[in-house]
């Protein structure tokens, strides 16, 4: 692997608010090289968006974020405010979850895009660039004068993508960019993101709860459970031969239609993901785990190599691949 452009080390996010202390991310590490794609999968509430927010430090005030987020070797978490504002969007941009609410309802979409350009590239031809960006994501340039409510869900998602690309970032974080869309539009947006990622050579962190999607989009995939990565490796391997029982269950929850291998495997995910404030002792997955051992409620295993470029955090892995 080349020198990583984004290197996250032992990232922890703890919310402190009306709902008490919520340890949403509990020690996450990963690396992303230039032009690489990494998928981040896991059920709702496992901490995916918390990671995205921590990368640019846009989580609510009072949230405790520790660890390191090294962007080109520089730690975002300890940057001075001025430097942080300069890095935001020009080095790393986020396509936020929920296209419906991420755009300011009383501002034309074109000026929301132009605002970012004017901020980071003063003197640039912002209007021309807005037209360019809209056409890049497959929207007519005249859509710039529309307000968000005048666009469909898919069009708004395209605007968000255009907005994220406005300042030519090298790292793009896409947080469930297709979740709220219907299937046809999902496929279009996914194609668009993939094409742009390749053409622009973006390093992309792609967040979703649908593991099967990552098999197409990302070279590598990390599966999260209760604020930790429980398995990481090449997407194909994670999807088809998961070492961690949770990753296996997640893969089975989104079977590839027509693939016989998935018909035999039980869709073994019962119950709800745990509340991060009251995690079960030991491995937080053990109450839902079909292959839990008696000692699973007392030990939480670190990520452990399964193969040359694969790691998983499960007692079964400690004794070699299952």
């Amino acid at each position: 692997m080349t020198v990583p452009i984004l290197r996250v080390r032992d990232l922890r996010v703890t919310y402190r608010g009306e709902r008490g202390v919520v340890p949403a991310v509990r020690g996450v590490s990963f690396e992303l090289g230039p032009g690489e794609t990494l998928g981040l999968a896991g059920e709702s509430g496992c901490g995916k968006s918390s990671i995205a927010g921590a990368l640019l430090r846009v989580l609510p005030r009072g949230t405790e974020v520790t660890g390191e987020v090294l962007l080109d070797g520089e730690d975002v978490l300890t940057m001075k405010p001025g430097r942080l504002r300069a890095v935001r969007w020009s080095e790393m941009a986020i396509v936020f979850q929920g296209a419906l609410h991420s755009l300011n309802p009383v501002q034309r979409v074109g000026s929301q895009i132009a605002e970012a350009i004017e901020l980071h590239q003063p003197g640039a031809d912002a209007r021309g660039r807005v037209s360019e960006l809209l056409e890049l994501v497959g929207l007519p340039a005249r859509r710039a004068i529309d307000y968000p409510h005048q666009l469909s869900g898919g069009q708004r998602q395209r605007v968000l993508i255009a907005l994220a690309l406005a300042c030519n970032p090298r790292v793009l974080v896409a947080d469930e960019p297709t979740t709220a869309l219907d299937v046809m539009v999902q496929a279009q947006v996914l194609d668009l993101l993939q094409r742009l990622q390749r053409e622009l050579g973006l390093a992309m962190l792609f967040i979703t709860h649908d593991l099967s999607m990552l098999a197409h989009v990302c070279r590598r995939t990390a599966v999260m459970y209760a604020g930790r990565i429980v398995e990481e490796g090449p997407s194909e391997d994670v999807f088809q031969r998961a070492a961690h029982p949770y990753a296996a269950a997640l893969a089975a929850a989104f079977p590839v239609i027509g693939d016989p291998a998935f018909r035999k495997r039980p869709v073994g995910l019962v119950g709800d993901p745990p509340d991060p404030r009251e995690l079960p002792p030991g491995c937080p997955f053990h109450p839902r785990c079909a292959v839990a051992r008696p000692d699973c409620d007392s030990i939480e295993v670190e990520l452990w190599p399964v193969a040359a470029d694969r790691r998983a955090a499960c007692v079964h892995v400690l004794g070699g691949p299952r």
Partner: peptide, 21 residues
Amino acid sequence: EDYLTLARAKGLRDAQVRDRH
């Protein structure tokens, strides 16, 4: 609102996020 998070992520100053958005 989410659009304020986005405005902050763009690199706007706190006062700009408040006054413009």
